[in-house]
């Protein structure tokens, strides 16, 4: 994926995907780290998601971090609702890695989170981490408890996260990048 930078060099873009169940915090996660105004679609929900929040992301979010003049990182958030599952395959094309956000305070979403993880990792050998969001809430399940609840093996990183805090989001992205780094070519 090449275009020209201000100096005339080719600009490379790399893509990461942020997924998770409805209200897991995907929009907030991307907003916290993106250097541009996040392009998102917030509309009044028309299905069961209305019970969760009045306006929910019906499509996906898009954020961007300029790494250098010739390199840009794009962050794509997947839609939460099942009726937008068709987007997952499109978004997964050419992605560098995946962050699966889970709302640590809502165990009723863990099954859906598992479905999302299964979808992505069954299709391809993908670098991914699980971000246990809302760790600042008193009733949050800990990352260790979440690992058990989501039945994830010990090598999968389940990271504490507060999606509204840039530093926390940054740490999650860095942990994912360390995995990608290990798998990258010299």
């Amino acid at each position: 994926m090449h275009q020209k930078s201000a100096r005339g060099d080719a600009v490379q873009t790399v893509k990461m995907v942020v997924s998770g169940a409805v209200n897991a915090g995907k929009t907030q996660f991307i907003k916290a780290i993106s250097e541009i105004e996040v392009v998102s679609t917030e509309r009044r929900a028309t299905d069961a998601t209305r019970q969760v929040k009045e306006a929910t992301t019906v499509a996906m979010d898009f954020g961007r971090i300029a790494i250098a003049d010739d390199l840009v990182l794009h962050l794509f958030g997947t839609p939460g609702q099942k009726r937008f599952d068709f987007m997952w395959e499109i978004l997964a094309e050419g992605m560098l890695g995946l962050i699966v956000l889970v709302d640590s305070t809502r165990p009723e979403t863990f099954r859906e989170t598992n479905r999302i993880i299964d979808y992505f990792i069954s299709q391809r050998d993908i670098a991914y981490v699980i971000a246990a969001n809302k760790q600042d809430r008193p009733n949050a399940w800990s990352p260790d408890e979440l690992r058990l609840a989501l039945r994830q093996p010990s090598h999968v990183k389940v990271l504490p996260c507060v999606a509204s805090r840039r530093e926390s989001v940054k740490q999650v992205l860095l942990e994912l990048l360390y995995i990608i780094q290990e798998r990258s070519e010299l």
Binding site: L71, L73, L174, L186
Partner: peptide, 15 residues
């Protein structure tokens, strides 16, 4: 999945 060079990942991490 794209094959990615370590140098590129290093740049993203540093940034």
């Amino acid at each position: 999945l794209p094959r990615i060079k370590r140098a590129l990942v290093d740049r993203i991490i540093n940034r």
